[in-house]
Simulated assay, not measured.
Amino acid sequence: MNIIPIVFAFDNNLVLPACVCISSLMMNAKEDTFYDIFILHSERINLEKEQLDKIPLYYTNCRVQYRQIDNTFDSAYEIRGITTATYYRLLIPELIPEYDKIIYSDVDVVFREDLSDVYLSTELDDVYLAGVNSLFFLISGYKKYYSSILNLDASKIIYAGNIILNSKLLLSKGIVSKFKDLIKNDYTYQDMDIINIACKGKIKQLPPSFCLTNYLNEIMVYHPDKLEGLWTKKEIHDALSRGIVHYNGQKPWKGYCVNFDIWWEYYRKSPFFDEKFYFDFFYSKLDELDKLTLWRRIKILARWFIVGRK
Protein backbone atom coordinates (compact mmCIF):
# COMPACT_ATOMS: atom_id res chain seq x y z
CA MET A 1 0.00 0.00 0.00
CA ASN A 2 1.34 3.42 -0.99
CA ILE A 3 0.41 6.10 1.53
CA ILE A 4 0.27 9.54 -0.06
CA PRO A 5 -0.08 12.52 2.30
CA ILE A 6 -1.85 15.51 0.75
CA VAL A 7 -2.88 18.84 2.24
CA PHE A 8 -5.66 21.30 1.37
CA ALA A 9 -6.47 24.67 2.94
CA PHE A 10 -9.74 26.56 2.61
CA ASP A 11 -12.66 28.18 4.42
CA ASN A 12 -16.42 27.63 4.29
CA ASN A 13 -16.71 29.42 0.94
CA LEU A 14 -14.89 26.55 -0.76
CA VAL A 15 -16.32 23.47 0.93
CA LEU A 16 -18.24 22.29 -2.16
CA PRO A 17 -15.29 22.78 -4.57
CA ALA A 18 -13.10 21.01 -2.00
CA CYS A 19 -15.47 18.04 -1.95
CA VAL A 20 -15.42 17.84 -5.75
CA CYS A 21 -11.65 18.21 -5.79
CA ILE A 22 -11.10 15.43 -3.25
CA SER A 23 -13.71 13.24 -4.96
CA SER A 24 -11.77 13.53 -8.23
CA LEU A 25 -8.63 12.54 -6.35
CA MET A 26 -10.31 9.44 -4.98
CA MET A 27 -12.02 8.50 -8.24
CA ASN A 28 -8.60 8.16 -9.85
CA ALA A 29 -6.86 6.41 -6.97
CA LYS A 30 -5.21 3.09 -7.66
CA GLU A 31 -6.22 0.09 -5.56
CA ASP A 32 -2.92 0.18 -3.68
CA THR A 33 -3.01 3.96 -3.00
CA PHE A 34 -4.16 5.34 0.33
CA TYR A 35 -4.53 9.11 0.68
CA ASP A 36 -3.87 10.64 4.08
CA ILE A 37 -5.80 13.90 3.65
CA PHE A 38 -5.16 16.93 5.84
CA ILE A 39 -7.40 20.00 5.81
CA LEU A 40 -6.03 23.26 7.22
CA HIS A 41 -8.42 25.92 8.44
CA SER A 42 -8.48 28.91 10.74
CA GLU A 43 -9.24 28.30 14.39
CA ARG A 44 -11.51 31.33 14.22
CA ILE A 45 -14.06 29.68 11.94
CA ASN A 46 -16.37 26.77 12.52
CA LEU A 47 -15.51 24.81 9.41
CA GLU A 48 -18.53 23.06 7.90
CA LYS A 49 -17.36 19.45 8.10
CA GLU A 50 -20.57 17.53 7.47
CA GLN A 51 -19.85 16.82 3.80
CA LEU A 52 -16.10 16.54 4.28
CA ASP A 53 -16.54 13.89 6.97
CA LYS A 54 -18.52 11.77 4.51
CA ILE A 55 -15.58 11.44 2.12
CA PRO A 56 -14.04 8.40 3.89
CA LEU A 57 -17.49 6.79 3.89
CA TYR A 58 -17.71 7.07 0.11
CA TYR A 59 -14.06 6.24 -0.51
CA THR A 60 -12.51 3.80 1.95
CA ASN A 61 -8.88 4.20 0.85
CA CYS A 62 -8.42 7.54 2.61
CA ARG A 63 -8.81 9.35 5.88
CA VAL A 64 -9.51 13.01 6.57
CA GLN A 65 -7.84 14.97 9.36
CA TYR A 66 -8.06 18.62 10.35
CA ARG A 67 -5.37 20.98 11.57
CA GLN A 68 -6.20 24.42 12.89
CA ILE A 69 -4.23 27.57 12.12
CA ASP A 70 -3.70 30.23 14.79
CA ASN A 71 -3.63 34.00 14.22
CA THR A 72 -0.23 33.96 12.47
CA PHE A 73 -1.72 35.27 9.23
CA ASP A 74 -4.49 37.53 10.53
CA SER A 75 -2.73 40.67 9.31
CA ALA A 76 -1.19 39.12 6.18
CA TYR A 77 -1.56 40.92 2.86
CA GLU A 78 -4.68 40.14 0.82
CA ILE A 79 -5.20 41.02 -2.84
CA ARG A 80 -7.46 40.04 -5.79
CA GLY A 81 -9.98 38.50 -3.37
CA ILE A 82 -7.50 35.84 -2.24
CA THR A 83 -7.81 35.42 1.53
CA THR A 84 -5.18 34.66 4.17
CA ALA A 85 -5.92 30.92 3.82
CA THR A 86 -3.53 31.01 0.87
CA TYR A 87 -0.65 31.37 3.33
CA TYR A 88 -1.49 28.23 5.33
CA ARG A 89 0.60 26.00 3.04
CA LEU A 90 3.70 27.76 4.36
CA LEU A 91 3.23 26.15 7.78
CA ILE A 92 2.76 22.56 6.56
CA PRO A 93 6.17 21.32 7.83
CA GLU A 94 5.28 22.51 11.35
CA LEU A 95 1.63 21.47 11.31
CA ILE A 96 2.18 17.99 9.86
CA PRO A 97 5.54 16.80 11.19
CA GLU A 98 4.70 13.11 10.73
CA TYR A 99 5.66 13.24 7.04
CA ASP A 100 9.04 14.25 5.61
CA LYS A 101 7.56 14.72 2.12
CA ILE A 102 4.03 15.89 1.47
CA ILE A 103 1.84 17.19 -1.37
CA TYR A 104 -0.07 20.45 -1.16
CA SER A 105 -2.92 21.33 -3.53
CA ASP A 106 -5.41 24.14 -3.87
CA VAL A 107 -9.04 23.01 -4.11
CA ASP A 108 -9.90 24.80 -7.38
CA VAL A 109 -8.48 21.68 -8.95
CA VAL A 110 -9.58 18.47 -10.66
CA PHE A 111 -7.34 15.41 -10.47
CA ARG A 112 -7.39 13.09 -13.45
CA GLU A 113 -4.87 10.46 -12.40
CA ASP A 114 -3.38 8.80 -9.34
CA LEU A 115 -0.60 10.75 -7.59
CA SER A 116 1.47 7.85 -6.30
CA ASP A 117 3.78 7.78 -9.33
CA VAL A 118 4.74 11.44 -9.19
CA TYR A 119 4.96 11.40 -5.39
CA LEU A 120 7.17 8.33 -5.16
CA SER A 121 9.37 9.19 -8.15
CA THR A 122 10.05 12.80 -7.15
CA GLU A 123 13.32 12.74 -5.24
CA LEU A 124 13.76 16.00 -3.36
CA ASP A 125 17.11 15.24 -1.69
CA ASP A 126 18.65 18.67 -1.07
CA VAL A 127 15.87 20.81 -2.61
CA TYR A 128 13.09 22.42 -0.59
CA LEU A 129 10.16 21.69 -2.86
CA ALA A 130 9.02 20.88 -6.37
CA GLY A 131 6.48 22.54 -8.64
CA VAL A 132 5.54 23.42 -12.22
CA ASN A 133 7.10 26.26 -14.19
CA SER A 134 4.65 29.17 -14.50
CA LEU A 135 6.01 30.31 -17.89
CA PHE A 136 5.86 33.88 -16.55
CA PHE A 137 9.09 34.63 -18.38
CA LEU A 138 6.99 34.67 -21.57
CA ILE A 139 4.94 37.63 -20.29
CA SER A 140 6.84 40.93 -20.23
CA GLY A 141 5.03 42.34 -17.20
CA TYR A 142 5.61 39.25 -15.08
CA LYS A 143 9.18 38.91 -16.30
CA LYS A 144 9.96 42.49 -15.27
CA TYR A 145 8.28 42.02 -11.89
CA TYR A 146 10.28 38.92 -10.97
CA SER A 147 13.57 39.97 -12.53
CA SER A 148 13.69 43.66 -11.62
CA ILE A 149 11.64 43.89 -8.43
CA LEU A 150 12.14 40.51 -6.73
CA ASN A 151 15.57 39.79 -8.24
CA LEU A 152 14.58 36.28 -9.29
CA ASP A 153 15.13 34.31 -12.48
CA ALA A 154 11.73 34.67 -14.16
CA SER A 155 12.31 31.47 -16.13
CA LYS A 156 12.32 29.40 -12.93
CA ILE A 157 9.24 30.72 -11.13
CA ILE A 158 6.88 27.91 -10.12
CA TYR A 159 3.19 27.90 -9.31
CA ALA A 160 2.33 27.44 -5.63
CA GLY A 161 -1.06 25.78 -6.15
CA ASN A 162 0.32 22.26 -6.60
CA ILE A 163 3.64 21.51 -4.95
CA ILE A 164 5.55 18.71 -3.24
CA LEU A 165 7.32 19.85 -0.09
CA ASN A 166 10.50 18.49 1.48
CA SER A 167 9.12 19.20 4.94
CA LYS A 168 12.07 17.73 6.80
CA LEU A 169 14.58 19.98 5.02
CA LEU A 170 12.34 23.05 5.20
CA LEU A 171 12.24 22.65 8.97
CA SER A 172 15.90 21.81 9.51
CA LYS A 173 17.10 24.76 7.41
CA GLY A 174 14.79 27.27 9.09
CA ILE A 175 12.88 28.05 5.90
CA VAL A 176 9.49 28.03 7.65
CA SER A 177 10.75 30.85 9.87
CA LYS A 178 11.85 32.66 6.71
CA PHE A 179 8.34 32.18 5.29
CA LYS A 180 6.90 33.85 8.37
CA ASP A 181 9.25 36.83 8.07
CA LEU A 182 8.40 37.32 4.39
CA ILE A 183 4.67 37.32 5.12
CA LYS A 184 5.12 40.83 6.51
CA ASN A 185 5.77 42.11 2.98
CA ASP A 186 3.00 43.00 0.51
CA TYR A 187 3.94 40.75 -2.39
CA THR A 188 1.68 40.92 -5.42
CA TYR A 189 1.38 37.15 -5.73
CA GLN A 190 1.44 36.43 -2.01
CA ASP A 191 2.45 32.88 -1.08
CA MET A 192 3.76 32.14 -4.58
CA ASP A 193 6.23 35.00 -4.33
CA ILE A 194 7.24 34.00 -0.81
CA ILE A 195 7.89 30.40 -1.84
CA ASN A 196 9.98 31.40 -4.85
CA ILE A 197 11.99 33.93 -2.83
CA ALA A 198 12.64 31.76 0.23
CA CYS A 199 13.42 28.62 -1.77
CA LYS A 200 15.49 30.30 -4.49
CA GLY A 201 18.00 27.86 -5.98
CA LYS A 202 16.42 24.93 -4.15
CA ILE A 203 13.35 24.27 -6.30
CA LYS A 204 12.83 21.25 -8.53
CA GLN A 205 10.84 21.58 -11.73
CA LEU A 206 7.99 19.10 -12.25
CA PRO A 207 6.31 18.21 -15.56
CA PRO A 208 3.30 20.37 -16.47
CA SER A 209 0.82 17.56 -15.80
CA PHE A 210 1.18 18.36 -12.09
CA CYS A 211 -0.43 21.80 -12.50
CA LEU A 212 -2.23 22.54 -15.77
CA THR A 213 -3.36 26.14 -15.38
CA ASN A 214 -5.40 28.13 -17.89
CA TYR A 215 -2.29 29.93 -19.08
CA LEU A 216 -0.25 26.76 -19.55
CA ASN A 217 -3.16 25.24 -21.44
CA GLU A 218 -3.31 28.24 -23.77
CA ILE A 219 0.43 28.20 -24.52
CA MET A 220 0.39 24.45 -25.16
CA VAL A 221 -2.48 24.73 -27.62
CA TYR A 222 -1.60 27.95 -29.47
CA HIS A 223 2.16 28.39 -29.01
CA PRO A 224 3.80 24.98 -28.45
CA ASP A 225 6.92 26.25 -30.26
CA LYS A 226 7.66 28.46 -27.25
CA LEU A 227 7.99 25.35 -25.07
CA GLU A 228 10.79 23.69 -27.01
CA GLY A 229 13.62 22.77 -24.69
CA LEU A 230 11.43 23.11 -21.61
CA TRP A 231 8.98 20.22 -21.97
CA THR A 232 8.81 17.29 -24.35
CA LYS A 233 5.86 16.68 -26.66
CA LYS A 234 4.90 13.72 -24.47
CA GLU A 235 4.90 15.86 -21.34
CA ILE A 236 2.67 18.40 -23.05
CA HIS A 237 0.33 15.67 -24.31
CA ASP A 238 0.15 14.11 -20.85
CA ALA A 239 -0.68 17.46 -19.28
CA LEU A 240 -3.50 18.18 -21.72
CA SER A 241 -4.96 14.68 -21.61
CA ARG A 242 -4.69 13.72 -17.94
CA GLY A 243 -2.93 16.47 -16.00
CA ILE A 244 -4.19 18.14 -12.83
CA VAL A 245 -6.53 20.89 -14.04
CA HIS A 246 -6.00 24.01 -11.96
CA TYR A 247 -8.65 26.72 -12.31
CA ASN A 248 -6.47 29.57 -11.08
CA GLY A 249 -8.60 32.19 -12.84
CA GLN A 250 -12.35 32.02 -13.37
CA LYS A 251 -13.97 29.24 -11.35
CA PRO A 252 -16.13 26.71 -13.25
CA TRP A 253 -18.79 26.61 -10.55
CA LYS A 254 -19.22 30.39 -11.01
CA GLY A 255 -18.95 30.86 -14.76
CA TYR A 256 -17.59 29.57 -18.04
CA CYS A 257 -13.83 29.09 -18.31
CA VAL A 258 -11.25 26.85 -19.95
CA ASN A 259 -11.93 23.19 -19.07
CA PHE A 260 -15.08 24.10 -17.12
CA ASP A 261 -16.73 20.98 -18.57
CA ILE A 262 -14.17 18.75 -16.84
CA TRP A 263 -15.12 20.18 -13.43
CA TRP A 264 -18.82 19.69 -14.07
CA GLU A 265 -18.21 16.16 -15.27
CA TYR A 266 -16.52 15.28 -11.97
CA TYR A 267 -19.16 17.16 -10.02
CA ARG A 268 -21.87 15.09 -11.68
CA LYS A 269 -20.03 11.86 -10.85
CA SER A 270 -19.29 12.87 -7.26
CA PRO A 271 -21.39 11.88 -4.22
CA PHE A 272 -22.05 15.59 -3.70
CA PHE A 273 -23.98 16.17 -6.93
CA ASP A 274 -27.12 18.24 -6.47
CA GLU A 275 -29.55 18.49 -9.36
CA LYS A 276 -30.84 21.92 -8.34
CA PHE A 277 -27.38 23.48 -8.15
CA TYR A 278 -26.53 21.97 -11.53
CA PHE A 279 -29.68 23.17 -13.31
CA ASP A 280 -29.66 26.58 -11.60
CA PHE A 281 -26.16 27.18 -12.94
CA PHE A 282 -26.82 26.19 -16.54
CA TYR A 283 -30.22 27.80 -16.77
CA SER A 284 -28.75 31.05 -15.46
CA LYS A 285 -26.10 30.88 -18.20
CA LEU A 286 -28.76 30.26 -20.83
CA ASP A 287 -30.58 33.33 -19.57
CA GLU A 288 -27.38 35.34 -19.95
CA LEU A 289 -27.04 34.19 -23.56
CA ASP A 290 -30.68 34.99 -24.29
CA LYS A 291 -30.12 38.55 -23.07
CA LEU A 292 -27.17 39.20 -25.39
CA THR A 293 -27.66 41.68 -28.18
CA LEU A 294 -27.58 40.45 -31.76
CA TRP A 295 -24.25 42.23 -32.34
CA ARG A 296 -22.72 40.55 -29.29
CA ARG A 297 -23.82 37.13 -30.52
CA ILE A 298 -22.32 37.80 -33.95
CA LYS A 299 -19.01 38.78 -32.32
CA ILE A 300 -18.95 35.56 -30.28
CA LEU A 301 -19.61 33.46 -33.38
CA ALA A 302 -16.99 35.37 -35.37
CA ARG A 303 -14.41 34.82 -32.64
CA TRP A 304 -15.17 31.11 -32.59
CA PHE A 305 -14.75 30.78 -36.35
CA ILE A 306 -11.61 32.92 -36.52
CA VAL A 307 -9.81 31.97 -33.28
CA GLY A 308 -11.44 28.88 -31.88
CA ARG A 309 -10.91 26.78 -35.02
CA LYS A 310 -7.21 27.55 -35.53
Rank of each mutant, 00 (worst) to 15 (best):
L165P: 07
P5D: 06
H237Y: 15
I22M: 12
I306G: 01
L91C: 05
Y267D: 00
L216Q: 08
G141L: 02
I6Q: 01
H41A: 10
E78V: 13
E275K: 14
F281W: 09
S167C: 15
A302V: 13
Y119C: 06
D274E: 12
P56V: 03
A154H: 04
I6Y: 04
L171N: 14
I262K: 06
K49A: 05
I175N: 03
S284V: 07
G229H: 12
D126R: 09
Y146K: 12
K184S: 11
Q51Y: 10
S270A: 09
S134P: 05
C19Y: 00
D100C: 08
N71R: 07
V132G: 01
S148V: 08
I175H: 06
Y256L: 14
F38K: 04
I55Q: 01
N2A: 11
M192R: 02
L129H: 07
Q205T: 15
E235W: 09
I183K: 02
Y278T: 02
R63I: 09
A160P: 06
N217K: 03
V15I: 15
I55E: 02
G131P: 11
G308K: 08
I262Q: 04
N28C: 10
Q68F: 12
F34Y: 15
G201T: 06
V307C: 03
Y128Q: 03
S24F: 10
Y278V: 05
E94V: 07
D108A: 09
F38N: 00
R268L: 08
D126G: 03
L152T: 10
K156P: 01
S140C: 06
I183L: 09
N13K: 14
I139W: 10
G243Y: 01
I4Q: 00
L16Q: 11
L115H: 02
N61R: 13
V20C: 04
N162Q: 14
E275R: 11
